[in-house]
Write a protein that binds this DNA or RNA. Structure first.
Lengths: 337, 337
DNA sequence: CCGGGAACTGGAAGCGGTTCCAGTCCCGTT
DNA sequence: AACGGGACTGGAACCGCTTCCAGTTCCCGG
């Protein structure tokens, strides 16, 4: 906290006065806008340096009607959803892109009513210049809020049931299809899917990809075993799957967390991977590399997803009209399949 | 974006006018401050509801000199440090605590010069009501910035070489000692440590804990093999350790990521865990439970760490003077040791 | 019926910038 | 020497909300 100087931060008025110019000129000099003579511009800069003046962002925000911040809101019924390393990677990308545009990142975990209310206030009260929305579920109240927001909104992944104007998504269906086709191409026939939450578009799309691949190969898809994208959920779903279809020889899990859970269940059930059951995940999180056996998985460019969301938002804030983006996925073959 | 109504957000003036009161009264009614008659208070509330009025946070911030936001800054020479799931958990805790105080969370990944500069501006320009600082390294430029900041600063973990006035930390040395003592108690004698970066206080403290335990048992500690807290680093360090001391029978890794890397190296080297080499980690991240074998590790309450940092900051912002906190750790025994 | 204090009220002064706009200045032209 | 125009300049009006303070109003005991 403050040590010596109880002196307030210098204001632009003080800078102007010391530099012997008016506040307007000082302001222009600061933002190096035109209509400032060389001499005065330098005078202002000198005083700024000498006083260590830093403009008050709040005042600037009020005057320009721009907050200088973008919000990333992660929906979920439970804050622990955020513990998924997926989001951390998104943030790394988004943060870098926002930094380029000199925007700050506000992070909102909209996991409670209170949290959603705060997001609503943010949206309606212009508490940020724009918002990135992720992890929406079916009938997510945030979707409605975003609809009415008079503020740029970019979706990360698409919400269920509607296609927003601006979004960045991975090719979930395509990746899932590729994963399933790979399993089929290795001679697996009784291929099941541990699908993610079907109240999310990612879960649905990945299931569609699985189903299309199966149908394309002329094999009846097995009924999806739904889990919640967590390791524990994947483990439980795998157990359920073994109970119902003990003869599966291939499993496409809709994300790596679930795949790792499945791996654990299979190990405990004494079913060697990939000898008896081949497993493919989705995401290519760090855990995929570390799993035993290392996980064959569909890599989606998560950091790029964050980066592109942020760039899209920056473009929107800048008055442009960017087009939605679908990022490609790529199968990474390791030992599990 | 805006669909129909090009109508601006209503302002407090409009609310006041429609409610037939002055702006001051409207303001007081809004913040339910005293000195407003029941009738007018209700009139204001009615209009607010009917207009869907939301106060402009920027204007409020300017007037109250409070931004309504707290920043969490994560230092690092590379944004990828943030991919460590550790931070996500901190955020879950911090976010919840800030929500209670109705503060927003700004996340700053100070991984570049530009990033640090922005943090500096935040600190000097009063862009937030307070700051939480994490992952500082030796001679971290952020430490100096924090020093001069006329703003509450809470440290997550202690910086190297100095003890700040306000911080929340885990009992790193104690946890490391417990881990090492556990290994010793199980009959291991050639116990080594894969220490984390020794330019961080956490790395040092955990090394001290290891050393103290060894000395306490009358055994010469092995020279620490330093790694960077990553899985890859842990794997490499383990390889180096095997090359130098092929006869180790116990390893304390200063975090779970490194422990998992060590597990991988040991598996590849054909050294069964825990039969030949017992491994203990630190953190108890999700990966510990999933590792093969499941990792015995020192759990630190990461979410609580975030929560307590945020609470401490809230207290500081509220003018109180909280005391530093050291959170206890606890050994979680699984199969790897 | 009056005095006095408590409860309310609203005008006005900020908070610290940005930006519009009406002037000034300074030159090169005519 | 008067003139037109572009480059500068600074006064003043915001941006939208909080809060101080000087009044008003209201109510109650005397």
């Amino acid at each position: 906290m403050a040590e010596g100087a109880p002196r307030r931060q210098p204001t632009l008025d003080e800078v102007a006065e010391r530099a012997g110019v008016s506040r307007s000129v000082a302001s222009r000099a600061l933002n190096n806008a035109p209509h400032v003579s060389r001499a005065k511009r330098e005078a202002v800069q000198r005083v700024v340096r000498q006083l260590g003046y830093v403009p008050n962002p709040t005042a600037r925000a009020l005057a320009t009607r721009q907050t200088g911040a973008a919000a990333l809101v992660v929906s979920g019924e439970d804050p622990s959803i955020f513990a998924d390393p997926f989001f951390a990677q998104v943030i790394v990308g988004a943060s870098a892109a926002l930094e380029e545009a000199d925007l700050h990142l506000m992070l909102c975990l909209a996991a409670s009513d209170r949290g959603r209310e705060r997001v609503a206030e943010l949206l309606r009260g212009k508490g940020a210049d724009g918002v990135m929305l992720m992890a929406l579920r079916e009938n997510d109240p945030l979707a409605a809020l975003a609809e009415q927001a008079e503020m740029p909104v970019v979706f990360g992944g698409r919400p269920v049931g509607s296609t927003p104007r601006w979004y960045v998504d991975a090719d979930n269906a395509g990746g899932a299809r590729e994963a399933t086709e790979y399993l089929l191409s290795r001679g697996r026939r009784r291929v099941a899917t541990l699908c993610g939450r079907l109240d999310t578009e990612a879960g649905r799309a990945r299931y569609r990809g699985y189903r299309d691949a199966m149908l394309g190969a002329g094999i009846d898809p097995l009924p999806p075993v739904e889990a919640d994208f967590t390791e524990a959920g994947g483990a439980a779903a795998m157990a359920a799957l073994l109970a119902g279809h003990g003869d599966v020889d291939g499993v496409f899990a809709a994300n790596d967390n679930m795949a790792v859970g499945a791996l654990r269940t299979l190990r405990e059930a004494g079913r060697p991977v990939p000898a008896e059951v081949a497993v493919v995940g989705f995401d290519d999180l760090a855990v995929a590399r570390v799993a035993d056996p290392p996980l064959t998985t569909v890599r989606q460019p998560i950091t790029a997803l964050g980066r592109e969301m942020a760039r899209m938002l920056v473009a929107l804030v800048g008055g442009q009209d960017p087009t939605p983006l679908i990022l490609p996925t790529r199968l990474v073959v390791r030992a599990s399949a």
